Amino acid sequence: MTTLLKRVDREKLVLALAAPLLAVVTALAITSAVMGLTGDNPFRAYQVMVDFGSKSDSQVWIINKAIPYYLSAVAVAVGFRMNLFNIGVDGQYRVAAFFAAVVGGALTLPGFVQIPVIILVAMACGAIWSGIAGYLKATRGVSEVITTIMLNFIAGSLISYFLQEGRLAERDENIIHTPDIPDSSHFFEFSTQVQPIHGTVVIAVLAGIAYWFLLGRTRFGFDLRAVGRSQPAAEASGVSVTRTVITAMLLSGAVAGLVGMPTLLNESGNYGNDFPEGIGFTGIAIALLGRNHAVGMGLAALLWGFLERTGTQLEFEGYPQEIVGVMQGIIVLSVVVAYELVRRWGLRRQQRLVGEELAARAAGTGPRSTDDQDPAEVSA
């Protein structure tokens, strides 16, 4: 049995390396074929992307861009881990950022007090907005996909209503935005030779650590995964499915509330009609790309930022602007398909190994470990 376990462990290591390798090779092959069909040179495009992405200013830009992407992916992944599809992260972070900006612009507290207040308000608003869908799912069985999509539209309408001059916003030339947050309440930055790195990268790192620990090292994380695997089995073991679903959606929304903080606290200092939208949907792709793993999603967020940054340079080189979107879609599909194929192959492989080991032991021809031998035989 010890020999079998060692063999299975080696198989897991091989499978873990095979899946991303297969995904990368497949994505490069399909992307190269698409470029070739359009008459473009794929190898020249890759060279342009690598050269431009390796510049210092591009690296800082990619890191800053990856911060909200990563937070959005973590928010989505909390639901994914229990088969909840929180497609409403986009509305949750926009509602959270808007009301956090309103509170931040109305207060004049010291920065070390006001910054936590703004962040807590954002997390609370995101949790409340997501908790509506969680409550309906847990108590009425309403699909969270439908409710979160509808809540996205309601969030946009609610913000549009209040984001008007004379209500909760003010006009600055052609831009309508909430009152500016005091400079003392802006988040710190890490200085570099080109441009600063947003200090909210610390928030993203802490969110990733908390996600890894909570879902992978606590009883709640076990309960959450158990409910995702089988609700009847989880209930039979004493897990409250209703409470777990609602709690998971509240946590997902709380993390979603952090998505707008890099823009609010490190860039704009207010919420205006030019506040970025669509980050929540990007988070879905990044969560899939990173396989809901804390480190994997971080690498996926950096890759997404790299593609967006270098894609602008490809346009100057004469490549179609849509090529970056094609590359992003191909990469996500390649990863999803590659991991599923490798998972199925690995499952069949392990079943075959176990069958061969049991058949050999039944026939009396297979090797036996000291755990399976008689004590007298071992001492002899």
Rank of each mutant, 00 (worst) to 15 (best):
A233P: 10
E340R: 15
R81V: 08
I132Q: 01
F52T: 08
V24E: 07
P116M: 05
A19N: 03
Q47S: 10
R352K: 06
I176F: 00
Q313D: 15
S252H: 14
T139P: 05
V324Q: 02
G325Y: 05
G366K: 11
I87T: 07
T244K: 00
R352A: 10
D274A: 10
I286G: 10
A97I: 07
V102I: 07
S54W: 06
A285L: 06
F52H: 12
S56T: 08
L71M: 06
A376S: 15
Y161K: 01
G36R: 09
A169W: 07
M82L: 15
A338C: 12
R368I: 05
R368P: 15
A66P: 01
L358G: 15
G131L: 07
E235P: 09
P320G: 00
P20C: 11
V48N: 08
A210F: 12
A207S: 06
G39A: 08
A233V: 14
L21R: 10
T263D: 13
L302E: 06
K12E: 15
A256W: 12
M261N: 05
S240Q: 00
W129V: 01
A127W: 02
R217E: 12
R140Y: 13
T218H: 13
L303N: 03
V89H: 02
E322H: 13
G141R: 09
V89P: 06
D274F: 11
D51Y: 12
I146F: 07
I181G: 09
V117W: 01
L347W: 10
I62N: 11
D57I: 12
T247A: 07
R44K: 09
L265W: 15
I159C: 05
L250W: 04
V332K: 01
I63E: 01
G126S: 03
L28R: 11
S58H: 12
A226V: 11
K6R: 09
F43H: 07
R217Q: 13
V76L: 01
G355D: 14
I119K: 08
G36H: 13
R344K: 03
E315N: 08
I279S: 15
S160P: 07
P320Y: 03
V335E: 01
T139C: 15
M249A: 14
L251V: 15
P68Q: 13
D51W: 09
R7L: 05
G290N: 02
V201E: 00
R225F: 10
S268L: 09
E165L: 03
I146H: 10
L158D: 14
G39Q: 03
A248D: 06
A124E: 12
G269D: 14
V245P: 13
P375D: 13
R94F: 01
A301L: 03
K65R: 10
H198N: 11
A45L: 14
V60D: 00
A256T: 03
V202T: 02
R309A: 08
A301E: 06
R167Y: 08
L288N: 14
V194I: 12
S334M: 04
T148A: 04
F99V: 10
V335D: 00
R171I: 04
E189Q: 12
Q351N: 10
E144Y: 00
F162E: 03
L28G: 14
A338E: 08
S184V: 13
A29F: 01
R344V: 12
R344G: 06
Q321C: 06
V245L: 14
A18D: 04
N174M: 02
W212N: 05
L358P: 13
L151C: 08
T148H: 00
G131S: 04
V8E: 05
I209N: 04
R343W: 05
L333Y: 02
